[in-house]
Simulated scan of single mutants.
Amino acid sequence: MILVTGSTGNVGRNIVRELLAAGEQVRALTRNPAGSGLPAEVEVVEGDFTRPETLAAALDGVRRAFLFPLFGELESFLGHARRSGLERLVLLSSSAATFATPGWIGEAHLRNEAEVSASGIDATFVRPSLFMANDLAWADQISAVGVVRGPYAKARMAPVDERDVAAVAAAALTSAGLLGHVSFTGPQALNQVERVRTIAEAHGVTVGFEEIPRSEAHAHLAEHMPPPAADFLLDQLKEAAEGKGEPVSTAEPVIGRPAHTYASWVQHRIADFRR
């Protein structure tokens, strides 16, 4: 039995699909089982990292688990995991953990990795670059005004499809030898203008990109995340605009197929842009 936490999110839902396709028994942890929308063959259980009393039952009989990276909330889960005899953990981390200056986000993921390592459970840390799914935040601007406003228009980055992140995690859960760290990006380095153009072409509309000052972008981001996290994200965009972005390194050797391109991801999620 494999437990998937964060099972209704962009990555978790795809991990469930990958594991079922591989013939694995899957248990999914979610706060709202009735609204999970997961396949009938999945054992869906109610649970929450912030409610430790729900975790023992969720881990009963489980030997492998995917761990969603809730910052500061892993202690109870790991304690129950040790007591239940869990044999393998796959933690979703971030490529920021590999940076010379990890910043707020990278340091938070490194703390998670250290906590999992200290548990003594065999573990794999999946470290993708930024997600293509982050660009769904542009959907309202595209539909409402036909212009995406953001900082550092020329920031060239290689975002990764959540389906590829899930495929790496599923490989780590089902392969006896895939331990340690797996870092990867998407297959193409594209700037923000190019990504908006790709969405517009698939959507059949005209969409522009308006560059805004860093201060305005920071004020918006800080409404949704701690200010140091906003600083880190903007620093990464600035470096990418200066040609210092991550080198492209895909997950193909792990997943055994080509990584999804940005255009293929847009087609996969086009309904979400049209809502």
Rank of each mutant, 00 (worst) to 15 (best):
V11P: 00
G12A: 11
R13C: 04
I15W: 00
E18A: 07
A21G: 06
R27I: 01
T30A: 10
L38P: 01
L38F: 13
A40T: 07
E46M: 07
T50N: 11
T50C: 00
E53F: 05
F66W: 10
G79M: 07
G79I: 04
H80M: 08
R82I: 11
R83N: 12
G85A: 11
R88P: 11
V90Y: 01
S94A: 14
A96G: 09
T98Q: 13
W104I: 00
I105G: 00
R111H: 10
N112K: 00
N112F: 02
E113T: 14
A114D: 12
F125E: 04
V126E: 05
S129M: 03
F131N: 07
M132Y: 06
D140W: 08
V145Q: 14
G146E: 11
V147P: 02
V148L: 03
A153L: 09
K154T: 15
R156L: 02
M157L: 15
M157S: 13
V160C: 10
V160K: 10
A169Q: 02
A169G: 05
A170T: 14
A170D: 03
A171G: 06
S175G: 04
A176C: 02
V182P: 11
G186P: 14
P187A: 09
Q188K: 05
V193F: 01
R195P: 02
E201I: 13
G204T: 07
G204I: 06
E210P: 01
P213G: 12
S215A: 15
A222C: 12
P226Q: 07
P228Q: 00
A230Q: 04
L233D: 00
L234E: 13
Q236A: 13
K238A: 15
A251T: 06
V254H: 09
A259H: 01
A259K: 05
H260Q: 14
Y262R: 08
W265G: 10
Q267V: 07
H268R: 15
D272W: 01
